[in-house]
């Protein structure tokens, strides 16, 4: 087909579109008159049932269209929500993969939510931690719990910082319990008063090892940590509390 033929056909098509539009208008006028005649013609009648069927068709069609459109729209929204969730999941997965901080935070949260164990759980580190019959203070910023253990004989909370500094807080219960602390070649040993109880503080190789005996609860309370100052270490152990089990 040549360019000239294409142009001719397009021209012919456009002209006929105009001509047929005019023709439709003319025919429409005649049809309107015909319709008026039919309305006046008592011999021409459409059964009521046939007439009603037409109205029913319109009602049914629009009802079906509505249901279909709502379904499609709801499906579209669900797809968009799913895409957003997928993107968030991918972002989270990426952050989880590259960031140790996110890994620790997510692990603490997930384990706390899903765990059914009363003996071992993870919690967010920025609030007081309840474990067994003991309460431990909020951990210093950056520390993540790695071990929480509560048995009949002891309750332990252990946490590490990103720099691998450690805090271990343990409460030992029982009349016959003996607590041994390494004081050999210690840099510093001091008797201290903690929460009104006699205790001992040992510094050795940059580690603080502090303990005291709670005679009311018949328990030893001990803190072992690295990377903290003396005051920080003392402050932590002072905040460990034992709830009465009676």
């Amino acid at each position: 087909m040549t360019r000239r033929e294409e142009l001719y056909e397009a021209c012919e098509d456009a002209i006929f579109a105009l001509l047929m539009a005019d023709f439709a208008e003319q025919e429409g006028r005649q049809l309107w008159e015909r319709n008026q005649q039919l309305k006046r013609d008592p011999a021409f009648a459409v059964p009521e049932q046939s007439y009603q069927r037409g109205l029913d068709t319109i009602r049914r069609a629009y009802g079906a269209q509505r249901r279909s459109r709502i379904g499609r729209t709801a499906y579209g929204i669900a797809c968009k929500v799913a895409i957003v969730a997928l993107v968030l999941a991918l972002m989270f997965t990426t952050a989880f993969a590259v960031s140790p901080t996110v890994q620790r935070g997510a692990l603490s949260w997930l384990v706390r939510v899903t765990s059914v164990s009363a003996d071992l759980s993870f919690v967010t580190p920025d609030e007081e931690i309840q474990l067994g019959s003991c309460s431990f203070p909020a951990l210093p910023e950056g520390y993540t719990p790695t071990l929480q253990e509560a048995t009949k004989f002891h309750v332990t909370l252990e946490a590490f910082s990103p720099e691998n500094e450690m805090i271990n807080m343990t409460v030992y219960f029982g009349n016959d319990t003996a607590l041994s602390m390494d004081s050999q070649d210690a840099d510093y040993i001091e008797r201290v008063q903690i929460n009104g109880h006699d205790g001992i503080l040992i510094e050795k190789d940059g580690c603080w090892n502090i303990a005291y005996a709670d005679l009311d609860q018949v328990a030893f309370v001990r803190l072992f940590c690295t990377g903290l100052s003396r005051e920080e270490a003392l402050s932590l152990i002072e905040q460990i509390s034992i709830h009465s089990t009676e």
Binding site: A21, F23, A24, E25, Q26, E27, G28, R29, L31, W32
Partner: peptide, 11 residues
């Protein structure tokens, strides 16, 4: 559509 063109379409 115009009224008359609509009737043509209908029929």
């Amino acid at each position: 559509m115009s009224h008359y063109a609509l009737l043509s379409y209908l029929v």
